[in-house]
Design a protein around this nucleic acid. Structure first.
Length: 826
RNA sequence: GCCGAAGUGGCGAAAUGGCAGACGCGGAGCACUCAAAAUGCUUUUCCGAAAGGAGUGCGGGUUCAAGUCCCGCCUUCGGCACCA
């Protein structure tokens, strides 16, 4: 039943349908128009993977990104807030295989769906700046990037033991192996010797680590520490050990050169080339032992290898190294606890002061010699290596020194003798970028029997992916592109003889490592991005996305940025000035997943509560970096609040442009207190508190309309307009409709919040509190300009205070006029 | 093991060293209604009838005053981890 006198009902779905087409025309978020001289800001949300329709996680990320973007638009900035799709990759390929379709169709269908959902979700994207990484117009520049790296010597091929996912049938970067499992499919990752393409990220290890300091305070400290951990720099020394029966010495890396006198044996990684060589020159029995051991090592996977309680195993090669400081002959052993690809694949073992070496020594009956007196029990007795600080003993010239001095002295001794040098090592490995899959950017290299690796000339780019039709995409260990014979067989760009294209595709993290620059000119066919635009807009002022990318994506993007800087394409060294990591949306305590059966469908939430209520809930649930448990929050409560705000605007009866200065004092004060507090809260990412402040203002507004002031009071209009503008960051449909109800033209998103009139906030009196021994005992109203003496006197007169003091005597009285008195007794 | 973050009502959460629990969810009550829904208002940390007392993971400390700063624990979460 409709009530004729009160026909205005808040109908969120009607409002959504009403405003969408109007906004399509209005385009309030177009950026970089000719003659637009608003100051520039670049706000970027991590672009989605088109694996289906948008889900709750996207809804949170884009709600929060939008608060920031819309805030700066409202502040009068020319905000670039683009969107794109990270659309190459395995899920599309796997879905295609499963359904017998082309990955392209699946991908672009999903993109269309997500795009429509983003429009409905009222994302403030600039729809003129859109990119899709699987478009040739994008990946052509991915190939350009590869060739720039190649020409600079930063892209190279090598054969080594790589991470291999037996289920995806492709190699994986180190970063894509999580706890020994494939990050995509959770299969146990194995090792395989393959020739693969790498980017030389290790050349930038120092800068990637040191420049993290410049992000301090602007990136979550968690992400900074994760990156530091991942790069893992350690300082120490390279030490050369002569090997009996070998011309070349073997170099080992150690962080504890001070303990060199305690090195009682050497351990070589069982799966290293050095181990094979050393074993080859022993007797038949040892060779046999080594071969059997190596076989066992190769069969164990990372999961087994990483088990902490795993007993140490190894084989004594019966060969000897010479300790460079004391000439001692020490046995050489092989074991799998030494890694082939860290340091030099060989270590000096100091069992007394390293627990791993100790366990190994115990297991194989090797000598243990204490060279640092830490004041703890002898490791031979306690069974625990002493790894801490102490005084050097049994160490010749080092005796009596502390750890730090001993390290320095040992290094200078080694350097003087030419037996070693100070150095550092990184945990970070080079980035393996080739993949044996179809749906990715083809690597723009031709292999020629006479010329070797030949880069495809820039004017022949893009090397377009051949049609998937007729190709067998099923994982089989080699790239499906190998089956596209017309595509593979080309003539060498250099000599013209028959040659073959490289059939691998690039890791999709290459695509996303520079996409933020492509938004500057997403449709350009002549350059990856214009230098001048990069100067004007980049780096990204505010990046928003999940912490899941804390290592991989952010590290790669930082690396590529530094390379592009060194190649003189850009003048900055860090891509993302400020970073916000939003939390995850959980359901009943755990991440949403099909197997748990706890998936909340975004579309259902939107159909039930409306876009605005879902967006508002995302912002109001808590601090943005915390997880949101959907079971704990109330989208219906948000909807209720929005209706309440909308009704208040609907109640306003004064004319547009009514001068607020004659309005209700109390409500004006509430409005201007809000105006003072709101901006800093948003800029400090305290969106939940910002929403709470809007709620307070709506409560005050309601009270004023229903109370003495009445609906026609000018302050009521001022408050309602303030609510509409502020609310547009969180609930754009409701805010726009309120704005219209208040008599304005569409475009609340561009309506600026005025500065607070602080003169309205000056109080003549305040509530003073009186504490006795820090406990609240009384409060009363006092003039703001009350003197300390007068306030003290008032406090001491209070009955409640007298009672609290009792028969104790006063030791001290602290007065902070006009707000506080604290009486300390003794 | 190493590094980091966090522990506050029934729940999500607020709180420049200065009134702990803003704002909301949920609960209770009142008004409107024949009734319900919706809406508006009141109330809601715990114990206590009240006066009052207790209270921010635990134990200490600094301070007139500590959720906040310092020291030591406990628990949870995240990252790294046989990296020499």
């Amino acid at each position: 039943m409709t009530d004729a006198t009160n026909e205005a009902e808040y109908d969120v779905f009607a409002i959504q349908d009403k405003w969408l087409p109007i906004w399509d025309d209005l385009r309030p978020f177009a950026s970089g128009n000719e003659g637009d001289n608003r100051p520039k800001k670049y706000v970027l949300d991590m672009f989605p993977y088109p694996s289906g329709d948008l889900h709750m996680g996207h809804a949170e990320a884009y709600a929060l990104g939008d608060v920031i973007s819309r805030y700066w638009v409202q502040k009068g900035f020319n905000v670039m807030h683009p969107i794109g799709w990270d659309s190459f990759g395995l899920p599309a390929e796997n879905a295609a295989i499963k359904r017998g379709l082309d990955p392209k169709g699946w991908t672009y269908d999903n993109i269309a769906q997500q795009r429509a959902s983003m429009r409905r979700y009222a994302c403030s994207f600039d729809w003129d700046r859109v990119l899709i990484t699987s478009d040739p117009i994008y990946y052509r520049w991915n190939q350009w990037l590869f060739l720039e790296f190649y020409n600079k010597g930063l892209a190279y091929r090598k054969n080594s033991n790589v991470n291999w996912c037996p289920s995806c049938q492709t190699v994986l970067a180190n970063e894509q192996v999580v706890q020994g499992l494939c990050e995509r499919c959770d299969s146990v990752v194995t090792k395989k010797a393959l020739t693969q393409w790498y980017f030389k990220v290790t050349d930038y290890a120092d800068r990637l680590l040191d420049d993290l300091d410049t992000l301090e305070g602007n990136w979550p400290s968690k992400v900074l520490s994760m990156q530091r951990n991942w790069i893992g720099r350690s300082y120490g020394a390279d030490v050369q050990f002569e090997i009996e029966g070998r011309d070349e010495p073997v170099t080992v890396f150690t962080t504890r050169p001070d303990t060199l006198f305690g090195a009682t044996f050497m351990v070589v990684a069982a799966d290293s080339a050095l181990a094979a060589e050393l074993a080859a020159n022993t007797d038949a029995a040892t060779e046999q032992n080594f071969a059997e051991y190596l076989d066992m090592v190769k069969q164990s996977n990372d999961i087994e290898r990483l088990a902490t309680d795993r007993p140490k195993t190894g084989v004594n090669l019966g060969r000897f190294a010479i300790n460079p400081v004391n000439g001692e002959r020490i046995p050489i052993l092989v074991s799998d606890y030494v890694l082939a690809d860290y340091g030099h694949g060989a270590i000096m073992a100091v069992p007394a002061h390293d627990q791993r070496d100790f366990d190994f020594a115990k297991a194989l009956g090797l000598p243990i010699r204490v060279v640092v007196d830490t004041g703890e029990e002898d490791p031979n007795v306690s069974g625990t290596a002493t790894v801490g600080e102490g005084t050097m003993v049994n160490s010749g010239a080092l005796n009596g020194l502390a750890k730090k001095d001993a390290i320095e002295k040992m290094i200078s001794i080694l350097e003087a003798d030419g037996k070693g040098k100070k150095t550092k090592n990184f945990r970070l490995r080079d980035w393996l970028i080739s993949r044996q899959r179809y749906w990715g950017t083809p690597i723009p290299i031709v292999h020629c029997d006479t010329c070797g690796e030949v880069p495809v000339p820039q004017d022949q780019l893009p090397v377009e992916l051949p049609s998937a039709e007729g190709l067998d995409l099923k994982p089989k260990g080699t790239s499906p592109l190998g089956g596209a014979e017309d595509w593979v067989n080309v003539s060498c760009p250099k000599c013209g003889q028959p040659a073959k294209r490289d059939t691998d595709t690039m890791d999709t993290f290459v695509d996303s490592s520079w996409y933020f620059l492509r938004f500057l000119s997403p449709n350009s066919t002549t350059e990856a991005f214009p230098k001048q635009a990069a100067k004007d807009w980049a780096p990204v002022d505010q990046y928003v996305g999940g912490v899941t990318h804390a290592i991989l994506h952010l590290l790669y993007a930082r690396f590529v940025t530094k390379v592009l800087h060194d190649l003189d394409f850009i003048d900055f060294q860090e891509p993302f000035t400020r970073l916000l990591n939003q939390g995850m949306v959980l359901m009943s305590g755990s991440a949403m997943s099909k197997s748990r059966g706890n998936i909340v469908a975004l579309s259902e939430q939107l159909d039930t509560h409306g876009v605005d209520a879902v967006r508002l809930t995302m912002s109001f649930a808590g601090p943005p970096e915390e997880d949101i448990d959907w079971a704990d929050v109330s989208p219906s409560g948000s909807a209720k609040f929005l209706a309440r705000a909308w009704r208040a605007a609907n109640d306003v009866t004064s004319a547009v442009n009514t001068d607020a200065s004659t309005g209700n004092k109390e409500l004006r004060k509430a409005t201007h207190t809000f105006l003072r507090d709101f901006g800093p809260l948003i800029e400090g990412f305290k969106f939940n508190v910002g929403v709470a402040k809007i709620m307070e203002l709506v409560n005050a507004l309601r009270k004023a309309i229903d109370g003495e002031a009445g609906a026609s009071d000018p302050a009521v209009r001022e408050a309602a307009e303030t609510v509409a503008k502020a609310l547009s960051l969180f609930a754009p449909y409701t805010a726009e409709d309120m704005w219209q109800k208040l008599g304005h033209e569409p475009g609340v998103a561009l309506a600026q919040l005025p500065d607070a009139d602080l003169s309205l906030l000056v109080e003549s009196s305040v509530i003073a509190v009186v504490q006795v021994d820090g406990k609240l005992r009384d409060k009363f109203e006092v003039p703001v300009d009350i003197t300390e003496d007068a306030l003290r006197e008032l406090a001491l007169k209070s009955d409640a205070v007298k009672r609290a003091i009792g028969d104790k005597s006063i030791a001290n009285t602290i007065v902070r006029a006009p707000k506080l008195v604290n009486i300390a007794t003794k």
